[in-house]
Design a protein around this nucleic acid. Structure first.
Lengths: 119, 119
DNA sequence: CCTTTATATTACTATTTGGTTAAATAACTG
DNA sequence: CAGTTATTTAACCAAATAGTAATATAAAGG
């Protein structure tokens, strides 16, 4: 899964990772603090792995502070992802309208062309 | 990957599936027509599978017309996904500002508290 | 009916993902 | 330096993903 957009969506396709991002939306945090809410369900290396996925997708950065790693959000790839969706959402909403028109047209056309019953 | 949002992002995390959605943004299409641009790279069952992923994620619907399956977009889950990103994007943009403030503060505080050199 | 066209299913791969436990590394602290 | 805290890496595993080729099913049309 080479391309950036796929990596971004892939990273967002996991509830733990989205929750980690939600935590980070509150502001920068180190890994222990970030992990606390999840350690009932997951081991700490699991969190490390999730954070690595987020980092490799470019969604967070880690900075060193003694033995702590402080994580923070990188906004740009999310803007790209959101734009991708929105761009098509516009088209799709249009296409829904067109579909409606199309179906209306077809009913008319088919009745004209083949003398089909109006069911 | 039980939850809807994860399924949506997972479905979007593949360039072939995004391309299929882009095709469908032009309007409804049957599977053969949809598949044509991809058959140089992928087999037909591969497309069938991708379409099934999109369908199970609720991103498209299929309707029967004789031996053809007409696919079309369902907008709602995309709105949900886009909203999720946008909601946090706002927070994140704030958090970037806060990070800037925080770093400025810390420089001051640390210099005050520990008499560290200004490097 | 037989053939063709459109799509789906099966059976089988290789790779990736998401998790584990245990051990390793890194940096502060007394 | 020894111990403690924070984080990563290693080695492993089960399940999911993304693909294949071959076969099956469905419907239309001569």
């Amino acid at each position: 899964m080479r391309d950036h957009l796929s990596q971004t969506f892939q990273a967002l396709a996991d509830p733990t990772r989205r929750a980690l991002l939600a935590e980070l939306a509150q502001g920068e945090a180190n890994i222990s603090d970030l992990s606390k809410p999840f350690l009932k369900k997951l081991s700490q290396p699991a969190i490390t792995k999730h954070l690595k996925v987020l980092e490799q997708a470019g969604l967070i950065r880690k900075t060193k502070d003694a033995q702590w790693r402080n994580c923070s959000i990188k906004v740009e790839p999310l803007q790209v992802a959101s734009s991708w969706i929105d761009q098509y959402r516009e088209l799709w909403e249009q296409s829904l309208d067109r579909l409606g028109d199309y179906l209306d047209d077809m009913q008319t056309v088919e009745r004209k062309a083949k003398g089909k019953k109006d069911e």
